[in-house]
Amino acid sequence: MSAMDGFAEALLDPAQAVPKGLVDPEGRTAGKRFDVYRNNVVASLSRALAEGFPTIQSLVGTEFFNAMAGVYVRAHPPTDPRMMYFGAEMPVFLAAFGPVQHLTYLPDIARLELGLRESYHAGDAQGLTAEVLASLPQDSLEELRFPMVPSARLISSGHPIFSIWTRARDPQAPAPVPGGQDILIARPSFDPEPHLLGPGMMAFFTALSQAALLSEAIAIAAQTASEFDPGQALTLALSTEILEVPEVS
């Protein structure tokens, strides 16, 4: 029996006694000395969450966020040493966490922040620009596939998450109005930015990302929303470089 055996469990559960056999220089059972490890673990994991979810933190306040992070790290400790991927269960956690259950938009804000972080670390790929598009055979463009680059993300919400996210960072931004918003996350160079999608664009980009032909994606988007504007969607895609350069046979 080693004092290492109960160490990890006691770290995450402050109600548990310090494991036997952990001592100070006088041979007395470690008290505050064990608490240093307890504090380090929860504080470092909470710090990782705060870095990953700055908007959630600003919406609920730092003090509340830190307390909530303490609950989260005990409920969903990381399984991977890469802190950049820690916090994936945050949307599910927020949806079920009593004190913020009335803030029904919070889980989708967490999805947005997870998407931004994933995008930041995603693989590099040359995105399609207007110049490259102009160099492709124009008469067969609609029969090409334009998959999305690894750093692009699509997030659909029944809440005005783009407006909430923007206003959390800039108090001068317009107040959110009720209603759903769809978001495209794009990373043309190194900094991911969310973009508000117009009608039908979510269906359009989703279809492209699932390897539809351009013509099929336009048809699906038009079916979803009669106001879908393929020109506007393509302009957004080219300026944000979210589409891969298609393979021309």
Binding site: F7, A8, E9, L11, L12, Y37, N40, V41, S44, L45, A48, P77, P78, T79, D80, P81, M83
Partner: peptide, 9 residues
């Protein structure tokens, strides 16, 4: 077993 604890124990 409880996960990755992000500290040097």
């Amino acid at each position: 077993d409880v996960g990755f604890l992000n500290d040097l124990l």
